[in-house]
């Protein structure tokens, strides 16, 4: 049997030849998400000419902003090698708290108070996962339920509405625009630029990759791992608070389950973007791409005429697909019996 592309170029078996890189399964494994995305986009455009309409595109980005802001924070957590499944119910909490406090102490005080309370929740998770070294899946899954209970207790089980919807400037974060750009999009872009720089350019960002890539080696390099994980959860909760602010401001009232289920969509977006669930890989830019892909696909499915509820199924399929391609990219093949 002659050597095939499967037998990598050097005897060490590590580096691949340019030929091996060109093969179709390899390409699909590496760029599968983008390929799938292009196919989806073409399909949707053919099925419904309104899909690429500027209004529709702006609408998709705008409605993706809340999810996107949350995904930015979760990207830090995932790259540091942990999970955050609590962001959905934490967002409900932020939304309800800021709406309630709005009428009690006014928006100017309600916003910082809500941020402080949400950051406390993030700090608690960060303490449990970072300093006590508990498994992040268990901790944040528990927090998902605990914070949900907290929100219901706080609100007495009722939905929350601002009494005087006409007389407040609070709506600016969700409804306003600056230079023709909706504020939610602006907040998303600004936060993405800021956190993107933090992750890719600062020593802190470098250490996030190191801790996620090999926590033991990071410790041996003098990195204070617990503190770093703690900070990642703080960043995540800050993003959640921002998302809660946008959500509350958009409708000036909210159900107390508004963020329910978002944690999985956020995770889907982060993984779609290519962050590894094992930690150590991913970027803010890729997460933004992941958020947009998810938003456009969900919007496209609606325009094609699928029922809203089908989205849950589709989201799940997309997560599975993303995880599969993530693994496939690592082994350079779509399927392999070992590793």
């Amino acid at each position: 049997m002659p050597p095939t592309a499967e037998h990598k170029a050097s005897p060490s078996g590590r580096t691949e030849s340019w030929f091996a890189r060109l093969n179709i399964t390899g390409l699909l494994a590496r760029q599968g998400i983008l390929v799938a995305f292009v196919i989806f986009m073409i399909g949707f455009t053919v099925a419904n000419e309104r899909f690429l309409d500027p209004d529709n595109v702006m609408g998709v980005i705008r409605s993706s902003a809340i999810l996107g802001v949350m995904a930015l924070g979760v990207t830090f957590v995932v790259i540091s090698g942990n999970l955050d499944l609590s962001v959905g119910s934490m967002m409900s909490f932020s939304t309800i708290v800021v709406l309630d406090l709005h009428d009690k102490i006014g928006p100017a005080l309600a916003i910082p108070a809500m941020f402080a309370m949400t950051l406390c929740l993030g700090a608690l998770i960060g303490f449990l996962v970072g300093y006590l070294r508990l498994n992040s899946l268990i901790v944040t899954l528990g927090m998902l339920s605990a914070i949900h209970g907290l929100t219901l207790t706080y609100s007495g089980g009722k939905n929350m509405d601002i009494a005087d919807k006409e007389g407040t400037w609070f709506g600016v974060f969700g409804q306003g625009d600056a230079m023709g750009i909706p504020i939610p999009i602006l907040l998303f872009v600004l936060l993405a630029a800021l956190l993107g720089a933090v992750l890719s350019k600062t020593p802190f960002g470098r250490k996030v990759y190191a801790v996620g890539g090999n926590g033991v080696a990071a410790t041996f390099a003098g990195i204070r791992r617990a503190r770093l994980v703690f900070c990642c959860y703080l960043i995540s909760s800050f993003c959640v608070a921002t998302a809660g602010l946008i959500q509350a401001s958009r409708s000036l009232g909210s159900q107390n389950t508004v963020g329910q289920g978002l944690e999985l969509e956020v995770l889907a977006a982060v993984i779609l973007g290519g962050a590894s669930l094992m930690g150590g890989a991913g970027t803010i830019f890729k997460t933004v791409i992941g958020v947009l892909i998810l938003g456009f696909i969900q919007n496209g499915l609606l325009l094609v005429g699928l029922q809203f509820y089908v989205q849950y199924v589709v989201t799940w399929i997309i997560i599975i697909l993303a995880v599969w391609l993530d693994i496939a990219a690592k082994r350079g093949k779509l399927w392999s019996p070992i590793a």
């Binding site: 190191a210 890539g213 080696a217 990071a218 390099a221 150590g280």
Partner: peptide
């Protein structure tokens, strides 16, 4: 491999990590 290096990182970033 376990304690000395972040294997997925590049040479420069590993060397300057501490």
């Amino acid at each position: 491999k376990e304690q000395g290096l972040v294997l997925g990182m590049n040479c420069r970033d590993n060397m300057t990590l501490p």
